[in-house]
Design a protein around this nucleic acid. Structure first.
Lengths: 362, 362
DNA sequence: ATGAAAGCGCTAACAA
DNA sequence: TTGTTAGCGCTTTCAT
């Protein structure tokens, strides 16, 4: 009621000094107890108990900002999302990744600062990252190797010494020579084709992207290779390529396929987005899925929420994010730089839903 | 090449001391120049130029952690997402909000720490927020008033004095008596019904939620009120209520409507999720949209990406997030607490797409 | 096993 | 107009 007492810890969050005073020890001891320095037998069991008890009683928790200043590391990592923020829910993968990255970082008591659209390119990016003192950077599918290299070059480092670690996700620029976390399409695509063939399909068409990036190549190549394994082949008419992962490409390629003298009975699309476009074209043409056409997509980003729910090749996005974060934080915290550049590859698998069925004999 | 020079700024990020030395002034002056203290005429134009030049040359930017420690405020806000993280893309609103909140905060040079699922409830939440020294908290649609109250009670504050400001979004617990940012369904719903009536519809059905929360009530009440304005009414059969915003409810309610002796010609659903379920039911029953049934949804979260793209009542999610962040930060930074509890209400509007058409005369 | 002292990089009072 | 001083809360040698 009366505010002017002398040593009132008062309304402030308690500090280590408060704990020390009340426990009758020094602040140094409090720090040692709470941080359990490796040979933690430094402090006697008795004082240890005492300090812990007082800390709990006071609801003490160390001030993260002061810790960061003293330890000279801020437990902050930067996340640079792909330049994709335009197509909100047609492809939620970028959002999912950013959420999973944040979750994984939080679990390790790190913060994520996400670079916003404006400052994603050029020196602006380096300035931003530097001013925030990030301890490492995760790039999701950077547009160019330069974007990544600039961050590397913006160093000798803005923190202590050495370089700030960098990890690239999903669709890396290998020329930048950083560790990468990617996904291997093969297993999922193999399973998809096995599944279709098991259902009796022989005329299987493909809608994909024509790009030269390994990620795009993989989807095409593994599709073709899987057909070959079954002694099948893909006539050129059945192999439709577009120049972007857009709904429109999926739509128009499907129309082409439906106009063919001998229609395919199954369709594999290299992304959920294509599948969405395909579904529209099929709907308009009154070709029922899966009765008249089986559809398998790649991504499994929203495939399960369409009608019918799509059989799809599932990418382990959460694992990608988690490995990226732990790889990054490991190299932030390890004293010496690793000599080899880690290249983590995570497998895909097939998730069977309602868009595939046995081929109709009629 | 030789590392042991004396005053080598070296590989470290420059500090204000580096700038001060090189500019021949004191660190205090550097600080004043860079922070432009209100009566910024304190420092002469000459030294001002000098300092700015040196700072630019050295690529100096103040260490945010040191600033935070000294200024006793960390520029961090907490975001508590709704307990909804289960249904990833059936309803992306929670994700959008978290992204928009982060963007708005970044623009104001704040960080957001998002509370993760595990520690969303109970004392765990208070501990988390307190340990991170957040300067304020945004709740998205908290489950109970207690969740919010606990955070208020976990105070007399973990920062300086006074309470940590709190803002609730979208579906607040009014009993907790914090500022709120909500959306007014009326304008959008009025426009939706006007639109349908203009198209000749008279038999308009509703699928909604039966909850007692003002947000749920509003959607029901404004729908009915809008019909009344046009001299129409909604027979009980046309007024379908479920107990959750789930796809299944949308699906089964639509089946009920289709089984009615006199089918409605238009359908208003109180969420995108219902609309998705409705679309499935209509598809299966071969009722073409919009030829045989016009559909309007509420939310406009992913309505534009369905087939056909749905006419929908659009919620200004980005504005909600932006107002929340600026309201919160204003009250963090203002010295005295506002006496009145701000209740910001943002309007909705109708976005017309391809799921509505003139009623068929057949 | 413990405490004293120093200082991370910055800013705000107070002097000059 | 500018510089000096004194910390913010913490951790880490280095003494004891």
């Amino acid at each position: 009621l009366d505010e002017n007492e002398e040593d009132m810890p008062s309304r402030h969050q308690p500090t280590s000094a408060d704990v020390a005073r009340k426990a009758g020890v020094s602040r140094a001891t409090v720090s040692v107890v709470l941080n359990g320095t490796q040979g933690n037998m430094r402090v006697s069991a008795a004082t240890r108990q005492k300090v812990l008890a007082v800390a709990a009683e006071l609801g003490y928790s160390p001030h993260p900002v002061a810790q960061a200043l003293r330890r000279r590391q801020s437990r902050v990592i930067g996340f640079v999302p792909r330049s994709f923020h335009k197509l909100p829910f047609v492809l939620p993968i970028p959002y999912l990744l950013s959420i999973y990255v944040a979750q994984a970082a939080t679990a390790l008591r790190y913060h994520v600062v996400e670079v916003d659209d404006a400052s994603r390119s050029g020196d602006e990016l380096v300035r931003f990252l530097r001013s925030r003192r990030v301890g490492g950077v995760i790039f999701d599918a950077p547009d160019t190797p330069e974007a990544v290299r600039r961050v590397i070059a913006g160093q000798p480092s803005w923190l202590g010494e050495g370089l700030v670690p960098i990890v690239q996700l999903m669709r890396p620029q290998f020329a930048a020579e950083t560790p990468t976390i990617t996904v291997d399409a093969r297993r999922g695509i193999d399973a998809a084709i096995d599944h279709l063939v098991d259902l009796g399909h022989r005329r299987i068409a493909f809608i994909g992207e024509s790009g030269a990036h390994p990620v795009d190549r993989a989807r095409r190549d593994y599709f073709l290779a899987a057909l070959v394994r079954h002694g099948l082949e893909c006539p050129p008419d059945y192999f439709q390529l577009g120049r972007a992962y857009s709904l429109e490409v999926g739509y128009s390629c499907t129309q082409v396929l439906l106009g063919l003298p001998e229609r395919p009975t199954a369709l594999f699309t290299a992304s959920d987005t294509y599948a969405l476009g395909a579904l529209r074209a099929l709907y308009e043409a009154d070709v029922r899925v899966p009765d008249r056409m089986s559809v398998v997509s790649y991504d499994d980003a929203f495939a399960g929420h369409l009608y019918p729910p799509l059989t799809s090749v599932t990418q382990p996005l959460k694992e990608v994010a988690t490995s990226a974060v732990s790889l990054l934080i490991d190299s932030i915290e390890s004293v010496e730089r690793a000599k080899t550049i880690a290249q983590v590859v995570l497998p895909t698998h097939l998730t069977v839903r309602g868009s595939t069925a046995a081929v109709r004999l009629s």
